[in-house]
Design a protein around this nucleic acid. Sequence first.
DNA 1: ATCCGCAACGAAAACGTTTGCGTGTTGACA
DNA 2: TGTCAACACGCAAACGTTTTCGTTGCGGAT
Lengths: 357, 357
Amino acid sequence: MRRKVTLKQIAKELDVSISTVSRALNNSKEIGEETRQKIQAFAKFYNYKPNNIALSLKNRKTKTIGILIPEIVHHFFSTVIRGIEIVANQRGYNVIVGLSNESFSKEVINMEMLANGSIDGFILSISKETLLLQDYHHFKETISQGIPIVLFDRVVNDIDCDKVIVDDFKGSYNAVKKLISNGCKNIALITTMDYVSVGKLRTQGYLQALEDSKIHAKGNLILKLDDGLALEEHLDLLETEIEEFFKRNTRIDAIFAVNELYAVTAMKVARKLDFKIPEDIQIIGFTDGVLSKHARPSLTTISQHGQKMGEQAAHLLIDRLQLDTEDQDDEVVDFERDMNFKTVVVETELIERESTK
Amino acid sequence: MRRKVTLKQIAKELDVSISTVSRALNNSKEIGEETRQKIQAFAKFYNYKPNNIALSLKNRKTKTIGILIPEIVHHFFSTVIRGIEIVANQRGYNVIVGLSNESFSKEVINMEMLANGSIDGFILSISKETLLLQDYHHFKETISQGIPIVLFDRVVNDIDCDKVIVDDFKGSYNAVKKLISNGCKNIALITTMDYVSVGKLRTQGYLQALEDSKIHAKGNLILKLDDGLALEEHLDLLETEIEEFFKRNTRIDAIFAVNELYAVTAMKVARKLDFKIPEDIQIIGFTDGVLSKHARPSLTTISQHGQKMGEQAAHLLIDRLQLDTEDQDDEVVDFERDMNFKTVVVETELIERESTK
DNA sequence: ATCCGCAACGAAAACGTTTGCGTGTTGACA
DNA sequence: TGTCAACACGCAAACGTTTTCGTTGCGGAT
């Protein structure tokens, strides 16, 4: 087991100083041709690679970005990670991921753990519990320490940072409009509780689309589901909940669901109740995952383009990081930068499949 | 923007030495009660947290483990990551993930990038290209530098390290046995090319089960598919490939597929060709993902317990890391340790759903 | 002979910690 | 009064880099 060779060892072996070795390897022209050759050859032979940690300490930046997400076994989030990883790698960064598991305290812990020098910036999506508590002090503290954050998907307004979102409102609006133009009169909505921002926006899009088409929105056509039901263990509960909803509203001819699982489950229930899809009932879901593609019939969905969101987020963050390192004069720039937070919205796309006409 | 406070700043402010501050915060009893109180209070007020990078440099270990996987938008792999993250967090470690995207060179690059001090050890699953090339020099080099590796799922024998696998052979064997005991006579196998170790093992399990039941395995009942077909873009190709396979073999009454996608697609084709499931044809797939659960009919599968695999892998790695730091005497231990590589096999589980009788 | 400049290299600080060792100040005890 | 612990703290090295600022030696100009 030969450990990695260091500058010091090379210096000792070649009987020169550490600085000379460093300079030689960085092709400084202060070093004589001959010694440079010698040092480089030696370094290559022993496969010298500078130690990242030492570099991080010296440069006061780690070239790694922290990802903090609620859940990783989830098509959308893993797609975002992939997007982040790709551009991070391209631009010389690593990614370190933490999972909040939708828990506030885990989010805080994780964040503090990483904020102590391990990463240069965060890309994160807020956990549900945090959204519920509306306690964002950890984010603000991190930002005030000079560590930039990029929020994606689940964002809140009162955090000053870059954001990447999809136009949840518009996406839903278009989907419902589509259902209306397909002739649907009684369009049901299956959504989450309001504190999840995206759920709320999607609900608003639904309502607006109805209103613009002079359709009166009826409260009993809206089903707000508890989050617990989305858990793997409670699939059956989710199913019966939706089934009862159906039975209460026999005239439903379309369903718009704010996520894939709700949509697929609704479809399952509809078939069980002998609805023909899409003849008797049409269905659209938000979020395009594997379920939608492989369901029978395949599900018309609104794609969020998770990978693109990840890429955008990474670019935003790294741009800001590199901007930070360029300017040394602190005060003024701080002020200017505050004004410059961007919110990029990634366009959604309606992917039509078999569950709509 | 107030940057993080350091020991030096505290020392200066309180007019003591850096070492005194450090000791006071670590509750060294070399420090007088009074000064300790003072320093701790001050540190708490300014929210002092030791800088991770500096600690890493000093301790020559980073307390982070590197995960290197072929793909992250994948139910199995993300489940494994979740398992790793959970125990890593419990035991005070962070995880940094790299994606090889099934490419040899990306695997090498990523590994070298992380091996230069960024991580203490690796948990990884080998990319297909690497398996095809059979070039494992980067793994061996990393290990010889004293960085331990834990391989999971896709492993190869000639790398000396801990491994976590499922018993692919046994899992397949049991599944096929199940089909046989359900009365199936013409059991087809849909698998990958041989160079992916798990594909090979699963194929062997299939063959063995047939042989043990005195059923002659027929070559034309085995469909070996190219990997390219598993890509999202080529779903239709995959489908036609399987459809032709069906048409060539009209007497098939069961299918065992080595992954979820193949199984679901086969089911789709079967229904299209008016087979009744499970009456006319029974289907089992390896790997239990979301597709299986929500397919219609739901798919009987062999669960790999990805999360458990991740947890085991993390424990193996961290155990070894902590063992490494305990012993200072080098030579002897190296030798002993070589003998101690473990391979833990996580039991598979047959999850029966609607696609079998 | 003196001075200057340049090429080629070394010493040391710095990044933020921990820690072995040294040192000064007490108080007790002989 | 002198000796010696014990106590409370500071110095400095170390981890592995980069970089600023010297410091040599030497050739050429004056």
